[in-house]
Simulated scan of single mutants.
Amino acid sequence: MAQRLSDDFSSSVEIVEINMPQPLAHQLLVRNRFAGVNAGFDTLLCRGEVPYVNLSPPFDMGVEAVGEIVAVGAAVAKFRVGETVATTSRGGGYREYQLVDGKHAVKIPQAVPEILTLMPTGTSALVGLEQVGDMGSEETILITAAAGGIGHIAVQLAKLAGNHVIGTCGTETKVRLLQDLGCDRIINYCQENVHDVLATEYPQGINLVFDCVGKHMFDVGVDHLAVRGRFVIVGFISEYGQSFEPVVRPRIYEKLFWKAASVRGFLLPQYAEAIPAACDRLLTLFAQGQLNVAVDPTDFYGLEAIPEAVNYLLSGQNCGKVVVRF
């Protein structure tokens, strides 16, 4: 639970013990087995910098979780004790037990951490690419942080749609993951200059940039947009947990105007109407074996490990979705 606003997640949160809650008529009591880590959102929330929520400490943390139903409210008909569900309620993830409205739980075959990559992380990839990025087929698409939780799903969705996909990453382990996922051109930015690669190999520009990183990657992506190219801002993890870098340079409209290009911000809660259908599609693709889900192999156990997991993700070491196990 966030007990105070702070620039640093670890100094903001504390473990708090409360009595076991009992579900109201429309609620489920779920024992969380796995929770997904969203370090950027966690950090901004603890800093009080998420504009669409107005929270005063103390408040609960965490979002997506999978677990088992241990109690059911009297008015809930479609769930039973012992069934497994996925939840994406803000404040429900970083808990051992959570109460959730039965309308906001999704029944799943078993409580496995791979589901956390699909909901809501994979949902963000699908909605961001299709509805915000207007992804077509036979396009050239650049995905930054391509081996991360959202990135590696975006790579696969872009490939399934019939596109040429460029992915950036920073380690050989991540290169191998992207190779396995069929990424067409992998740029290890520790060994190659992203700007030089794009200038040399993609002189016609990039049709769609899907960026989670910000700073230098934002600048490079904007510079290399094609005519009518679209740049989707999914996040800016390079600046989470620190003051934003002051930028003194010409405004970017001159770069966009002559190409009829655009920069578009994307935040999943602003597309709530698209979430149910996107979740259904992703679960179907996963069940059919058309999506490979990467869960970072680093072990984080229990509530006390959450600050370490957040810092690990912010450091960029992860390969796939970072998960805490209970």
Rank of each mutant, 00 (worst) to 15 (best):
I108A: 11
V81R: 00
F9V: 13
D299C: 04
P297R: 14
Q317H: 03
P109G: 05
A272L: 02
L283Y: 12
V295D: 03
A86G: 04
V194M: 10
I15D: 03
V263R: 07
G320C: 14
V72R: 00
V50W: 13
R228I: 06
D42F: 01
I306D: 13
G40D: 01
E201F: 13
E273Y: 14
H195L: 05
E273I: 04
P113E: 05
A125F: 05
R95D: 02
L198D: 00
F218D: 03
G221L: 06
P269A: 04
K103D: 15
A274Q: 00
P57D: 04
T298G: 00
G93T: 10
D60S: 00
V175T: 06
N32S: 05
Q191A: 05
E83T: 06
G91K: 07
Q110R: 01
N38P: 12
A277K: 11
E49G: 12
I150Q: 03
Y240F: 15
M135V: 10
K103H: 12
Y271L: 11
V323F: 07
M1D: 12
D60W: 11
T84L: 11
N54H: 07
L208H: 00
A158N: 12
F244S: 01
V70P: 06
G316C: 07
E96D: 01
E239G: 08
A71F: 15
L129H: 15
Q288E: 15
G102Y: 08
A105F: 12
V194C: 08
L28Y: 09
E192C: 15
I141P: 05
G151L: 08
F41C: 15
L45Y: 13
G151M: 13
Y301V: 02
F210W: 09
G205L: 08
R325Q: 11
V100D: 04
K107Q: 15
H164F: 14
L142G: 12
C190M: 12
E172A: 04
G62S: 05
H152P: 00
S262N: 09
A309E: 10
E14Y: 09
R185G: 12
A111D: 07
L29H: 11
D296I: 00
Q288T: 06
Q156S: 09
E14T: 12
V220Y: 15
R281D: 12
V222K: 01
F218K: 03
G316I: 09
N32I: 02
P203R: 13
M119G: 10
Q242H: 15
Q290Y: 09
A2F: 11
Y271A: 11
P23D: 02
G91W: 07
F266W: 03
A71R: 02
L55K: 00
P51Y: 06
L181C: 12
S124Y: 02
A287R: 04
G82S: 05
E239T: 10
P297C: 11
I186V: 04
G205N: 05
V175I: 03
V263Y: 11
I166L: 07
A278E: 11
P276K: 04
E64K: 15
K174L: 02
A2W: 08
M217C: 05
V16W: 03
A272N: 07
L142R: 06
V66I: 12
V63C: 13
D134C: 14
G302S: 07
G205A: 08
R249S: 08
C212Q: 01
N318C: 03
R4E: 14
K215Q: 06
E68W: 04
G40M: 00
P57V: 09
E192G: 01
L116D: 14
V323W: 10
F41I: 05
Q98R: 06
D60V: 10
R228C: 14
A65E: 01
